[in-house]
Structures are given as C-alpha cells and as structure tokens.
Design a protein around this nucleic acid. Structure first.
Lengths: 244, 244
DNA sequence: CTTGACCTTGACGCAACGGCAGGGTTTCTA
DNA sequence: TAGAAACCCTGCCGTTGCGTCAAGGTCAAG
C-alpha cells in the first residue's frame, strides 16, 4: 500500500502518518525504487491502534510507551491514569461553566466580570458622575479580582453604598482636583473619610503584610496633588490603627 | 509599580505580562530611565480583567475583542459562545471516558483496545498457536478499528469461532507455508474455506466499493506463495458472489 | 503530451506562555 | 563599602500534533 491508501484505510491523514515516522512512533517502512513508502497490513494494524489510543486522548509518547512493552499491564495503567486526568479536566470545565453562568446571571449589562458579591454591591450603588467614585469602584474591582476581597468585606461596605453622605464626600474629593497641596480643605476631608469607614471593614481586609511598596506610589499617582494628600492621610490613619 | 509587583498583585507571571505586551493585548507602559516598565493602577485593573477572562477559557484575541469595545454586549455574546464551546468539550470528554470504561471493563488483559463486540468474540475463541489464525485476528482488529465492522458482522462470525472445524482449516493453511504455488492441496482448501463462511457474513460486510488496490496486494504479501494463492481464490469467489 | 492525482522533503505556523542565556540595576547585608 | 541577592531587560528556543504551503518527482489515463 502507498501512504494515501493506508491513511484512508485507518482514517488518518498522510501528514499524520509521516509525522509519526518523524517522531519515531512508527519506523519508516520500506521504499519502492521511486522513493514511495510501502506499507504492510501489519503497519495498518499498528496505525489503527495508534489512532484509537490518540482518540482516547493519549499523547504520542504515551502511545509509544504502550506500543513498546505490549504487556497489556502498561496499557491498563496508562488508561487509569488517563481517566483520572480526564475526570479532572471535566471537573475543571464544570467549574468554569459554573462561574460563567454566575457571571451571566449576575451582571447582565456590566462590561466587567466581577464576583457576585461585588456585583450585588455595585448594583445597589447610586449613579454618579464623580470621578473619585469611579476610581474607587475600579479599585474595588481590582481587589475583587485579586481575591483579596471577601463576602464579609462587601457586607461591611453595604451600608456605605446606600449612604448619601458618601456621595458628598466623593464630591468634596473631586473639588480638590486643581487645588494646591496646602489647601485648607484637605485636613477636614481626610478626617471625615476616616470617620466614615465602618469599624468592620478593617477586620475584613486580609492583613497580609504591607502591599507592595510600588503599589501605594502608583495609587497616589492616580490623583491630583491635593487629592493624593488626602488619600495619603487616610492611609496613614489606618496604618496606625492596624495595617493598611 | 514595576512588573514583578503588578504581576504579584494580579496573580500573573512577569513573563505572561510581557507576552501580553508583545501580542498587543496591552500597550507597553512608560519606562523609567533605566528601562524598567512602570505600571499604573489602571494597568492592574486591566490585567485583572484579562486574567479573569483567560481563566474562563477565552483566547487572547477574544479577550482583546472584549476589552476593545467595552459595550458589554460583546461580552455576553462571547461568553455565550464560550459556554457552548465548553459544553461541547465536556460532552467530548464524557464520550472518551465512556469508551475508556468500556475498554477497561471488556478486555482486562488484552493489550489491544478493541470494540466490545470484537472483544466478546475473541474471548470465546479457543487458544491456538496457528499463525494463520493469529493473522486473521489481526485483520479482524483492523476491520474493527476502521469501523467497517459492525455488531451484525460479529454475530455472523460467532458460530465460526466455536466451531472446531475452523481450527482444522487454519492448520491446513499453515501447512502450506513452504509449499509451491502448484500444490494440489490449494484447490480443496480454498473450496472448504469458501464453504465455511456463513451466509450472513457477506451481507454484514459493508460493500463500500472495492478496497484500495494496494491493500489486496499488501494482504497477499503477508502470506507464503501457496497460502497467498488460497487467499486469492477465496477472495475471487466472493468478488463473483457480490463484492469483497 | 498533457492533465490530474499521487508521492517526496523541508520548513513555517499555531496558543500561551516557560525557560534560559547574557547582561544591567537596585537594594539589602556583612 | 563591597558583595550577594533579587530584580529588571531583550531575545530566542521548546512545547503538542499535526495543517499548510512550497517546489518538485512519478505514474496512469485520455
């Protein structure tokens, strides 16, 4: 048989068969004077075996092992291992689909895939055009994504979200956008912000050591000078009280 | 932030982030004078988004699409498509695992993964050292693998397997190993073989045209000259009666 | 003699990075 | 203050299982 014939017979492509030769899965067969490979029935049997094993999901080197020592014991061993692997993959897929369903159910219009806890929180937040509020939400989604945020943290934040006083605080922060760093409004605003944070929040944030040093710098760089000063003071207050 | 810091923050490797820059998923950030990349909080938010989307199973170009037009509509669309894909993969895995279980249940000692129908047939076959019988079994597994064999074919073969007369035929074929092509035993043996094939078998073999020309040649090459002559005659008889 | 259907080798492409080489920078420590 | 650890940089090869040209040789039929 020529390569095309055997390929059609066992249901493989000629390219696949040549590939098997190339990687040593199957030895190169005899050649006819013109260079064509000639295959025997035994080759077909071997290739059929290869095909079934690969269709089961074995890698080519595993197939090679199975073909090599045809004790039959190796086969069962590899197959059992394979089944465990497939089961794991299946479970993984299931987990992904669950999270997917969760996302589709929670935020039907959000352009951001967030955890259900945060989604519930944001859904209850009032609409606002405050840039500071937007920034805060971004930071929250970041925390959410890093896994640093938990359900208890969102529970602690829940009262803040519906508090109209918080909106006023955001607006006061917005107003400092173009202000100098010695603006007299900085001190009172920082105090008010510290006071507004509920007691439970500090415990809810996992205190896994100080955040990377560069992160705080990057965080402050997001704000105008006067605003950054406020943020700096608020953070300082919390570091005193027991970590970030 | 430097690249290592942001990588730790969002749970990626520095290598992955540089890869994202390389493929244009994320623009290259500002550099410090020493060449180090400096990341902002916004970058972290973006990367966190990328991480969650890739963890769901999206490819990088799909992620790029979702990030590009953040309408939120595209997201739902892609996610639905993804879910369908995942479901398909899950079903595929399930099918593979079923076949695996089937194999493990059927042939606990066979070094060959065959269909349950053939496995049952071979299990009932008597032990023999006849080379011809072994060859026949190989050819059967080949048919089995190509999918050309069906349950009805195995049903038609069932009586042959338990028939002790068949063993005698195999032995007569074995005896022709070193015989010349004009051996007088050839004719009678061919007739006996043709007679031994049950009526149902011909209908059970899917007559999808003549087999590849090279295949018959390869098949005959497996046998000694006198044996090949027998096989040739048997095949000829069946071709007359209605295809191979 | 020309198609058209085969066959040959060789090399690149893919998905999403991992790992290493070879070299510079920063920072901590003795 | 030197040395080492811990970062950072670019660039290139390796992974898996083939698909897909590219550029050509071979063979049967019209």
């Amino acid at each position: 048989m020529r390569i095309g014939e055997i390929a059609a017979l066992v249901g493989l492509t000629t390219r696949a068969i040549r590939h098997y030769h190339h990687v040593g899965l199957l030895p190169e067969p005899e050649r006819r004077p013109n260079g064509y490979r000639t295959y025997t029935v035994r080759d077909a049997v071997l290739l059929a075996r290869v095909r079934r094993l690969t269709e089961l999901g074995l890698g080519l080197d595993e197939v090679r092992d199975v073909l090599a020592d045809d004790a039959g014991r190796e086969l069962a061993e590899v197959l059992a291992e394979l089944d465990a692997d497939l089961a794991r993959q299946q479970a993984e897929l299931g987990a992904r689909r669950r999270r997917l369903a969760e996302l589709l159910a929670a935020g039907p219009a959000e352009g951001e895939p967030v955890s259900p806890g945060l989604a519930a929180l944001l859904a209850r937040a009032p609409v606002t055009t405050s840039p500071s509020a937007a920034k805060d939400r971004e930071h929250l989604t970041l925390l959410d994504a890093t896994g640093a945020a938990g359900e208890q943290m969102y529970a602690a934040l829940a009262p803040l979200v519906t508090d109209p006083g918080v909106l006023a605080l955001y607006e006061r922060l917005d107003e400092l956008a173009g202000a100098p760093v010695d603006d007299p409004r900085i001190g009172p605003l920082a105090d008010a912000l510290v006071a507004a944070v509920p007691a439970g929040l500090l415990d809810a944030v996992p205190a896994d050591g100080p955040v990377a040093p560069g992160f705080q710098e990057a965080l402050l760089a997001e704000y105008a000078p006067a605003q950054a000063e406020v943020v700096r003071r608020v953070m300082a207050a919390f570091v005193e009280g027991g970590r970030t």
